[in-house]
Amino acid sequence: MDVHYLLQLVLNGLFVGAFYGLVALGYSMVYGIIKLLNFAHGDIYMLGAFAGYTMLTIGAGALGGGSIVALVVILVIAMVLTGTVGLVLERVAYRPLRSAPRLSVLITAVGASFALEYGVAVGYGPNPRVYPVGFGNGAVDIFGARLTYAQLFMMLVALGLMIGLDMFIRRTRSGRAMRAISQDPKACLLMGINVDNVISRTFFIGSALAGAAGVMAGAYYGKVDFLMGFIIGLKAFTAAVIGGIGNLRGAVLGAIVLGLLESFGTALLGSEWRDVFAFGFLILFLTVRPTGLLGERVTERV
């Protein structure tokens, strides 16, 4: 195999991995703090894509068409919106069940997922919508491999958001509170930390990141539909498990590993094997190394 082909596969993997990563972070944050697999998380990604679509369609003129600045503004607004939806979701669907058996919350999460999907289907209709912006096909040549400017831009935004989150978790008081709660919520309560607030904040941040990924996917791929969050939700979950669920750097690592596995796996076996490959690795990791690549703490699991 020649170098530029290998490099192209790596770039494909990294690009897809960037999207998986943004969604996987929210999965992992929520799991780390309240041990809940938030199956509605992929649908928050879908909501982000639709929020971006709505703003672009309504405000395209006012924002000066599909310029990068307009897109960034829309990205930020969509993040606030989806973050708020995540917050409300936690307040309405999950908080009342916090002391209930874990299975109840899991079922509620699946219900919330359907509610969001078909709520959007009712509001926007079942047909796909097309983003009214398009990027040119301009690209940079990296040793013969090709990366479009749009892809480069998306990856930089994703990287920026990931670094921002990492700094927030490691350097701020809020971040420290989150890490503390993930270790022992009862002790945190005794130490005077407002646990409910921190959990709300976690949902807000996780959902905002998924919303950002949704807007970016909508702008890059162009097509959005109400079921678009389903597969990526499962893939992000897989990424989180590969990296070690609950571990944020692990989630990003897992996403990149998954993206690369898919990219090389399909190159070897053909594109119809992509999902078989991805979910085969999920099963492999769950049986052989359930704590993932970076997970050390052996906690009890659902």
């Binding site: 597969i231 990219s263 399909t266 190159a267 119809e272 992509r274």
Partner: peptide, 20 residues
């Protein structure tokens, strides 16, 4: 000859194979 899964967004695998 490539087979893709309907309903996804990213078809870079098939595209890269076609280019190759």
């Amino acid at each position: 000859q490539q087979s893709v899964t309907a309903g996804e967004s990213d078809y870079s695998a098939a595209v890269t194979a076609i280019m190759r």
